[in-house]
Design a protein around this nucleic acid. Structure first.
Lengths: 250, 250
DNA sequence: CGTTCCCTTGAGACCGCTCAAAGACCGTGG
DNA sequence: CCACGGTCTTTGAGCGGTCTCAAGGGAACG
């Protein structure tokens, strides 16, 4: 299990390529300066490396700068549940910074670049920069409502609806950060990851994927996802509340 | 659909009966004073009333003072997923205070007494009382890790494991706030609620409940739950990470 | 050119679902 | 005091969605 390497010339926060996107809210110069100070390092990970270990303590929290990763939990016998995917702009490791050891792990899917923050400075963030504290809470609350929706999915949607929902969700989220080009999204995960996200077996996920393709809602081959008819996909998935994408970046 | 009534003589925060319990962390007098000011009202609800409406805006957030409620989401065709239960000391409505309309509803199970806070003062909380801001985040992060565990449950645990987990979880949580007396917990929810929490049908939930009883792990009748053999229940449920109960109260 | 990883397909088993009905409990009104 | 309706629990029967097991095919890579 190899280690990440530190990036020699980290991106300065005020030139952060993510922050340029209008999906991320504006920040005061003083808040950006604090974030810069808060950021102690920049890490580069290979695909299939572990960023955060299940049940281990961590002194760091991270913002994904580029790449895909996923959060997951496992049972001792190996059953795995993928909780959510981590895309550029997402914060992770907050939980471990606030209290106990991590109750979930995070693994990379692609090469990833991460901003590294030190947990001990988190208190300075709340006390000295309340807007940032507010934003951390905002992000946590938003993650929570995403998980609410996933629970509804796994608990009450059929396999086909679930898959439709997941693909729509990922496509929509990726679109917000500019990962969708020509209506095509490169999805680095395997069908096994989708299965572990949906609470389905690999085989049934594959068969459900076929059905979605036959219906003409999506196209997915060679790692590339295209949504052919978004309206019908959303109807199939019972998407009811589209959360606006605009959000803070830390 | 009737309305809650305002309690005529609300409990003063510094005499809050919950705050006396050692499970809730100590607070500085100045923070308690702010919470007192933040609290604009105290509501009383009957069983089966709605506290927060799905898809509606809300200007309030609440702390449960006494009683049981549950958070849920529904699909248009009526399928319902219960996300989590709300017990004394739990904060709710944060999401609506931060951004969009509520993406989930909250209904009472029993009579409930709630502290009511005004959303517009939330910013004062973060800017003037960073410890409280930190604690709000802490609560959000903890709810998130609860949902992670529920996702693992519904996605990867069998019906029996899921039910075992849920009963253990509720019992343990209720114990922390003194609701368990003589190893007995009064559980106000119906089997239909359990089913909608577990992502199972009512009938199958009933049959799974029988199995748990036959195994001698639990006793559940007349609304009262007793855990006979906690170790074996935890083993059955694959409980791996017991999150410590100590937490902040707002 | 063999190995490995991943996707695909088929067959059969089983877990959990729906439909249906009966029993238990409770509050209300005659 | 009993009859009645409503809500909740329990049980049985049969169906089907999803699972596991198994094997074949394709693409990437050393």
């Amino acid at each position: 299990m190899s280690q990440p390497i530190s990036v020699l010339t980290p991106t300065p926060c005020k030139e952060c390529p993510l922050r340029q996107r209008d999906i991320f809210r504006d920040r005061s110069p003083s808040d950006v300066a604090f974030i810069q100070e808060f950021k102690t390092n920049e890490f580069f990970y290979q695909p299939n490396q572990t960023i955060l270990f299940e049940n281990a303590k961590s002194d760091q929290l991270f913002t994904m700068l580029s790449g895909w990763a996923f959060r997951f939990k496992t049972l001792e016998d190996g059953r795995r549940q993928i909780i959510n995917y981590v895309l550029p702009g997402d914060l992770m490791g907050l939980q471990a910074s606030l209290s106990a050891p991590m109750t979930h792990g995070v693994d990379t899917l692609t090469e990833c670049v991460l901003c590294v923050f030190q947990r001990e400075k988190l208190w300075d963030l709340f006390s000295g920069h309340p807007q940032l504290g507010f934003d951390v809470t905002w992000l946590a609350a938003r993650e929570e409502s995403t998980l609410d929706e996933f629970l509804l999915s796994i608990g009450r949607r059929t396999a086909l609806e679930r898959l439709a929902y997941l693909l729509w969700f990922l496509f929509d989220k990726a679109k917000g950060i500019g990962l969708v080009k020509n209506n095509r999204l490169e999805m680095p995960m395997r069908q096994g990851h989708l299965a572990d996200t949906l609470g389905l077996s690999l085989v049934h996920t594959n068969k459900t994927l076929q059905k979605l393709r036959e219906k003409g809602s999506i196209q997915l081959n060679d790692r590339y996802l295209t949504i052919i008819d978004e309206q019908s996909l959303m109807r199939l998935a019972h998407v009811e509340t589209k959360i606006p994408n605009s959000r803070p970046l830390i």
